[in-house]
């Protein structure tokens, strides 16, 4: 376990993962459940344990929609989406780790796609 990385994620998220009572409501409410290898409650639990490496390398980081359903419905105010975001930032902030590079973009576009999608994806996937 990388103590430095865990502390950094705790600071970045601003979330006290110890508040979790393991009810699983975040995972129960997550719209991206099926697409995620690690589910919201696992993000919280694994960060608490310091088991962060698997999360950093998981595609799950880019499947979270940041829709805040888990944040809104968590009975303990744990805010799992902020934990996912902190782990994702920890991943993309590493050099060469951007999830999206500009050259890929033209192929993704169509005539109707709003700019909003592009700027949001950039903010989520790159640093």
């Amino acid at each position: 376990m990388n103590k430095y990385e865990k502390d950094w994620i705790d600071i970045t998220s601003g979330v006290n993962v110890r508040k979790c009572m393991r009810c699983g409501k975040c995972t129960a409410t997550c719209p991206s459940y099926a697409e995620m290898e690690y589910h919201p409650h696992q993000f919280v639990y694994m960060v608490e344990k310091g088991d962060i490496e698997p999360l950093l390398n998981s595609e799950s980081l880019y499947k979270c929609l940041t829709c805040f359903a888990c944040v809104e419905r968590c009975p303990r105010g744990v805010e799992p989406a902020k934990v996912v975001e902190a782990v994702r930032l920890t991943a993309v902030r590493k050099q060469g780790n951007n999830h999206l590079i500009p050259d890929q973009i033209p192929a993704m576009l169509d005539d109707d796609m709003p700019q909003q999608a592009i700027v949001t994806a950039f903010r989520k996937y790159t640093k």
Binding site: E35, M108, I118
Partner: peptide, 19 residues
């Protein structure tokens, strides 16, 4: 009040379609 898939449409059309 559930998400439409949002920006995921850039790289995962299937997920956006599902949502």
């Amino acid at each position: 009040n559930e998400c439409c898939g949002g920006y995921i449409t850039m790289e995962d059309k299937a997920q956006a379609a599902k949502r």
